[in-house]
Design a protein around this nucleic acid. Structure first.
Length: 804
RNA sequence: GCCGGGGUGGCGGAAUCGGCAGACGCUACGGACUUAAAAUCCGUUGGGCUUUCAUGUCCGUGCGGGUUCAAGUCCCGCCCCCGGCACCA
């Protein structure tokens, strides 16, 4: 038998053991309390696993392993989010079918994950590219379509010229493509859209039902961007038309001295005949069209715009005629694409008014609106505002809104920044959208029993320059018959975005082989919602919002029984390179987990990733830190040599053990893995100082460390000849009475400065503390010749004597 | 600009119902072991001053004030960093 700790020998052996015995298979015994732990399933890239991956995986593996020992029926599954661009690009470049590339990448990832000893139930593995899986992704889409939540629309989209793909707003970062960084252009395309905006309010409201870390909730609210205000109709003079605006400040309507509409606004086309400078306006529109939203926002320094000659609006409050301008600072995609400009109290309007010499009127007192816009108007008194004069802002808002409603000129309105989800991708490697276009019947869903609509095998996956999907060229796939009328029809050639498959994958884990339903209802009811979902902050406005939307929809149609998919959401920090920069191939600072496993072992890697620092923060990798963790395990291994029989805790270590059990138990649940490990390290130091460890103590310690370092603890348990296996033990409990030290060393302060130390029992009265303190020479020195003014004695904490 | 999080040794980080700041780990230095090195073990490691030894003492948690017997922690006013949103009406 080997003496030395040899993870390279131990770890694969235990991994085989767990697999063969099905140790971590989840049962469907619904009488047991359940715990569903979820981590974001990875995109199996060609790069293989990165040291960032195991951080969240280990964290929830720890919680899952602990909960099993606490008697829960635990579901901790894993799968693959395998559709996506990099695979397709690789396939194009190397002329290998993306399916093959995907298979290969998955095999690699799986092997790497296996080598880290995660307690996934691999029998429940899902793969978004598996037709048996995406059949249900397509099914959900058809349900959305059926309910009118999927629609096709001609609309300007963010177009990445390098990926040749349309991007959702969420995929545009600082004006560039999230994936490749190329600058995004605007293009008008006919796209499938999902009406996530119909759920905007519920997506905000139901955040109340869930336990998400605060920054996640805040970011979601931020992204949805709810704002309350009113819609107001401004009559267009000499026409029956009314120009509708959205404003959050209807109270300032008396200060609206002109209007601005977006260059794309349809008003221009409608009144083409009456507009005398139509050509000029069109030139401006063309110019604006060329700019992306980002560019438009970038050019913030200087306002541009053109007045519409021949059209004027009527301010319904003042009765004055006011000019209408077009400017690209008004976006067609928010509100109504038109604003009432109140230059006195809005910086943008003020700037614009200044530049074009438009009148500026003060309506809330407090500033000097000729000098600058006065925007500190959350409160204030109205002036120059007719019947609102003298009112407080909040009163004025109520009064004007009521007046507008009475006059039929406006109404209260809530607006959201959230836009509908661009759901089409002009790509090959994605789920085909299961619709057929028939000249007679329009868009017709593929009948459910014909799902899945699978991808045809093709020679060439290159996207076309026209922006059409490569599928469009496969005529014998495209050409089909209409399911409704039987006439000739064409398949939709757009595919779904990567976010589709990941919007519901956690449901499939409950019943991954089901071919009748997306998952059996009783399983969904038992397992959902997910008890704890950990994932990256980068998915807060994408995946997390999308999947909440889909889940709410599935709730509405009765598939699931709770409106929220995830009860709790936490997020891990990134692991940076040793140089404190983001790990990337180009920076050459990537650490490969395989090498760490080969050199130090999986347990060391797991331990290190949990000990490295605050779980929620980014932290640089440190090879020296890894060695320190290996050293700990080497020392831990040597406990075997100092083990002595005994069913009790050594009295001198008893309190330490109970404290450690408490600390570790609590810290594992609170993302404080680093301090849990520190506590075990400290206890190990104490044990080494004592020089021996009883069997009872060693068993306890093995169980506590097992979730972090499962291989070494399994091995030591068996080597010690303890009955059964460590993973099958019950999680230890601490005795609240034994967590408290009987005697403690506390500081004695004179006027708040530490001047000595005494050893007291918690139950000792102040007299006892005083007696001990007075015996201390240094204390005597400070008290001599002084009057004791006050004594503060906090048992177990401090003894402070105030002298004068 | 708005919202959120955060500034603690040479480094990662502990400690926030106010109660000995720096747990745990790393690094560095010194020592033991070794022919030597690695590994391992022991010791020191916030700064200054003091001390033969022991110790003692002052300063120190981004900056400036305040409350308190006592402040990293609470209050007021600033500075800086990270993340999100941003011509959103």
């Amino acid at each position: 038998m080997e003496r030395k700790y040899n993870p390279q020998e131990i770890e694969p052996r235990w991994q085989d053991f767990w697999e063969q015995k099905g140790t971590f298979r989840t049962s469907e015994d619904h009488s047991k309390p359940k715990f569903y732990a979820l981590i974001e399933f990875p995109y199996p890239s060609g790069e293989g696993l990165h040291v960032g991956h195991p951080r969240p995986y280990t964290a929830l593996d720890i919680v899952a392993r602990k909960r099993r020992m606490q008697g829960y029926n635990v579901l901790f599954p894993m799968g693959w989010d395998a559709f996506g661009l990099p695979t397709e690009n690789y396939a194009i470049k190397n002329k290998i079918h993306p399916r093959i590339v995907t298979e290969r990448n998955i095999a690699r990832f799986k092997e790497q994950l296996r080598s880290l000893g995660f307690s996934f139930d691999w029998s429940r593995e899902v793969n978004t590219t598996d037709p048996e899986y995406f059949k249900w992704t397509q099914w959900i889409f058809l349900k959305l379509f059926e309910k009118g939540l999927a629609y096709k629309q001609e609309m300007p989209i963010n177009w990445c010229p390098s990926c040749k793909i349309g991007l959702a707003n969420e995929e545009v970062v600082n004006g560039g493509c999230e994936r490749c960084g190329s600058e995004v252009e605007m293009r008008v395309k006919n796209q499938w859209m999902l009406k996530i905006t119909a759920y905007a309010q519920r997506l905000i409201d139901d955040l109340e039902l869930v336990d998400y870390i605060d920054r996640v909730k805040v970011q979601q609210r931020n992204w949805i961007g709810r704002s309350e205000g009113a819609e107001v109709d401004f009559p267009v003079v000499g026409t029956p038309h009314k120009l509708r605006v959205f404003t959050t400040r209807p109270d300032t309507i008396f200060g609206a001295t002109y209007m601005v509409i977006s260059p794309e606004h349809p008003l221009l086309d409608e009144f083409k005949e009456q507009i005398s400078n139509y050509a000029e306006l069109m030139a401006y529109r063309d110019q604006a069209k060329k700019k992306s939203d980002f560019e438009r926002a970038e050019l913030t320094k200087d306002k541009t715009g053109v007045e519409i000659k021949g059209l004027r609006a009527l301010n319904p409050a003042t009765g004055n005629e006011i000019p209408i301008w077009i400017s690209d600072y008004v976006l067609m995609t928010y509100g109504t694409g038109a604003i009432m400009a109140v230059p006195g109290h809005d910086e943008r309007d003020w700037e614009f008014a200044r530049k074009f010499g438009l009148p500026i009127v003060e309506v809330v007192v407090g500033g000097n609106v000729q000098e600058e816009a006065y925007t500190d108007t959350q409160s204030g008194i109205m002036v120059n505002s007719g019947f609102l004069n003298g009112l407080e802002v909040s009163e004025a808002i109520k009064k004007i809104t009521a007046w507008l409603e009475e006059q039929g000129l406006g109404r209260r309105k809530v607006n959201f920044k959230l836009r509908d989800w661009v759901f089409s991708r002009q790509r090959y490697w994605g789920e085909p959208i299961p619709l057929v276009h028939c000249d007679k019947c329009g868009w017709v869903p593929v009948p459910e029993e014909e799902l899945p609509v699978v991808l045809p095998d093709v020679e060439n996956y290159e996207p076309t320059d026209t922006g059409e999907s490569p599928l469009a060229k496969i005529r014998d796939w495209v050409e089909t018959t209409c399911p409704k009328c039987g006439g000739p029809a064409e398949r939709e050639t757009d595919t779904m975005p990567q976010w589709a498959g990941s919007s519901w994958y956690f449901l499939r884990y409950t019943d991954p082989q089901n071919d009748e339903d997306l998952a059996a209802k009783d399983r969904l009811d038992y397992w959902l919602p997910v008890d704890w979902y950990n994932g990256g902050m980068e998915h807060t406005t994408l995946h997390l919002l999308y999947s909440r939307f889909w889940h709410k929809f599935l709730y509405d149609i009765g598939v699931v029984s709770y409106p929220e998919p995830y009860k709790k959401r936490t997020s891990h920090g990134m692991i940076l390179g040793e140089n404190n920069e983001k790990m990337s191939k180009s920076r050459g600072n990537v650490v490969n987990p395989d090498e760490i496993v080969a050199e130090y072992g999986a347990d060391t890697l797991r331990l290190y990733e949990m000990f490295i620092g605050d779980f929620e923060k980014s932290v640089p990798w440190s090879t020296d830190g890894v060695r320190g963790c290996r050293r700990f395990l080497d020392r831990f291994w040597r406990l075997q040599e100092m083990a002595v029989p005994g069913k009790e805790f050594n009295p001198s270590l008893e309190t330490s053990f109970h404290k450690t059990i408490k600390k570790v138990s609590e810290d594992y649940e609170n993302l404080k893995f680093n301090t849990a490990i520190a506590a075990m390290m400290a206890l190990l130091n104490e044990i080494f100082a004592v020089g021996r460890i009883t069997h009872a103590e060693l068993k306890t310690l093995l169980i506590l460390l097992n979730p972090v370092a499962p291989h070494i603890t399994e091995e030591m348990w068996v080597r010690m000849g303890f009955p059964g296996y460590v993973h099958a033990q019950e999680w230890p409990k601490w005795d609240p009475d034994k967590v408290i030290e009987e005697t403690v060393d506390i500081a004695v302060q004179i006027n708040g400065k530490v001047r000595g130390e005494i050893t007291v029992s918690l139950t000792d009265p102040v007299e006892r503390a005083r007696e001990l303190a007075m015996a201390n020479g240094n204390i005597q020195r400070y008290i001599e010749g002084k009057n004791i003014v006050k004594e503060i004695y906090v048992p177990g904490k401090i003894y402070n004597i105030v002298v004068k």
